[in-house]
């Protein structure tokens, strides 16, 4: 038997609304297999769905025949999920996403809550720079292992 510390799962699915649900379920089961609790899996499912929908809608511009590619890596300390499209459109947002207050005040577009939501649900949520020349958008979500701490006794 050959074992490895890093567990990697790869998923590729058609860039069409509806298929993100299949990827979401597969990633959720992967997270369950590596020991994530139910609350974090719910967060993960929402964030992965948002990232996939963005990739289908904005990155691939709903063009049929394209794919969305996901790579999930668990190394014992954190779960990292990269969602990549084929870059029909570059839609990376520079800097931090607009806050709800800015949106309500009309200082930022009302749409685009997904990015804000993902930053709240994951420990890290950000675009990756295009270092491999594919021109596709790559979005990374990270959940770190939580260290349980006991409440001090009074």
């Amino acid at each position: 038997m050959t074992t490895t510390r890093q567990h990697i799962i790869e998923i590729s699915f058609p860039s069409e609304f509806g298929y993100e649900v299949i990827a979401r379920e597969a990633i959720a089961t992967f997270a369950r297999c590596v020991g994530f609790d139910r609350d974090r899996i719910d967060d993960l499912k929402t964030a992965v769905s948002e990232a996939c929908i963005n990739a289908i809608e904005h990155g691939n511009k709903k063009v049929h025949g394209l794919t969305i590619d996901i790579v999930g890596v668990y190394d014992g300390n954190m779960l990292q999920i990269d969602i990549a499209d084929q870059g029909i459109q570059q839609y990376q947002v520079a800097g931090a996403p607009a806050t709800i207050e800015e949106k309500i005040a009309g200082k930022a577009p009302a749409r685009g809550m997904g990015l804000l939501l993902m930053t709240q649900l994951a420990d890290e949520a950000h675009f990756l720079p295009d270092t491999n020349g594919t021109r596709g958008n790559r979005f990374r979500l990270i959940w770190r292992e939580r260290v349980e701490t006991l409440e001090p006794e009074h």
Binding site: H7, I9, I11, S12, Y19, A23, A26, C33
Partner: peptide, 16 residues
């Protein structure tokens, strides 16, 4: 339509 999964050879991942 095709969905592709590439899984580690570790028992338990069949659930994915």
């Amino acid at each position: 339509k095709v969905i592709e999964l590439r899984l580690p050879s570790r028992l338990g991942y069949e659930r994915v």
